[in-house]
Design a protein around this nucleic acid. Sequence first.
DNA 1: ACCACACCTGACTAATTGGTTAATATTTTC
DNA 2: GAAAATATTAACCAATTAGTCAGGTGTGGT
Lengths: 210, 210
Amino acid sequence: MNSANKEKKTGNIRAKSKVKILSAARTEFVIQGYKGATVQSIADRAELPKANILYYFKNKENIYHAVLEHTLEMWDQGIGTIETDKGPKVAIEKFIAAKVRMSFNHPESSKIYAMEIIQGAQHLKEYARTYQRQWVREKAKVFQQWIDNGEMANVDPVHLIFLIWSATQHYADFETQILTIMNRADFEEEDVEQVINFLSDIILRGCGLA
Amino acid sequence: MNSANKEKKTGNIRAKSKVKILSAARTEFVIQGYKGATVQSIADRAELPKANILYYFKNKENIYHAVLEHTLEMWDQGIGTIETDKGPKVAIEKFIAAKVRMSFNHPESSKIYAMEIIQGAQHLKEYARTYQRQWVREKAKVFQQWIDNGEMANVDPVHLIFLIWSATQHYADFETQILTIMNRADFEEEDVEQVINFLSDIILRGCGLA
DNA sequence: ACCACACCTGACTAATTGGTTAATATTTTC
DNA sequence: GAAAATATTAACCAATTAGTCAGGTGTGGT
């Protein structure tokens, strides 16, 4: 038996447990914060004994790192690439739509990430930080070309990315406040589309792309 | 001597200590989170013995509540009122400017508030939550009238408020990320004006007010 | 059957931390 | 300047919690 097969078999139960633990951990870290979330509370939520958690993850920080990494992976997969070959309007529209859907479908990941940044990104490795710098610069360069070609209004591309970023992320991070203000218990499917339409509408017009 | 004078005198040292403690606490709560910030770490930052902290504030939760309350007061004072008597353009411009300045001048307050909301607003009293609902509804009503009068584009007023809120708040909460992306150590005075101009420009145009 | 290895977990420990207390010092008031 | 009120602080305690460990149980391969 080669090592790939072995991994697949013996890793099965391992993988399942890890997923369960990480899911519980994500929730606990959001609600209680890094220090406030206890290994015991994660264990309780995952319905596993505490020692079992620490069998799969060396320590609490390791769990947190795994949660963070998962978030970054998902972010990269979901919105890492912007479709730039059909012009600014499609690019912005699709970017907004993808990011809004991410916010509504995975609010916890967004929240974890937000808290990490707010607290100074102490756990984020250097490469994760500079990676984003590269990402933004790359996209900004494309926007700048569109501006130079007169395909969209002359707005600072970097700040435009911040704007889209913040406006979309807001629906995940400030979920609680938004629901309170809208006097609702939960978001519904049509809310997602409404937000996408609203943001696309106003931001496209703001970019002279109406 | 009347009680006002008495308060003024005996409250002097008390007030000074409290300010020092709250300032230290604010920083600690931002960096470490509620559970992560220890009374000792607050004491160290305030350069006071721990027991002295607990002489002025019954317990840790009390300190946190005081920090939160101070934040809400400042928010209300700085941006509680929108100047609505000069039409939508001035109203939006001034609101954006006030909120951006708040973000750049008091990022820690914004961060504390953001973390509180992200974690489910567990410490926010009911009145604080519903107060904001009233606030948003009131402002939204004004926007709606402008829309009905054809003074601005037909955009959902509530989501417009969310948009301005998030875009401005972002510069406080995601300070770390933004500085990294812009490859800067700190913000400067001209950054504030640039952000105000950028956001006013794009949002006003988005609202058909260019 | 049996071996090797992965998986599981109750019980324990050392360190941290919120909060108390009681004794001392300083300031205010008259 | 003495009494009263306020402020200060070291020492202590009970509770919580991250992480260890030793002794299990299951399981797949031969």
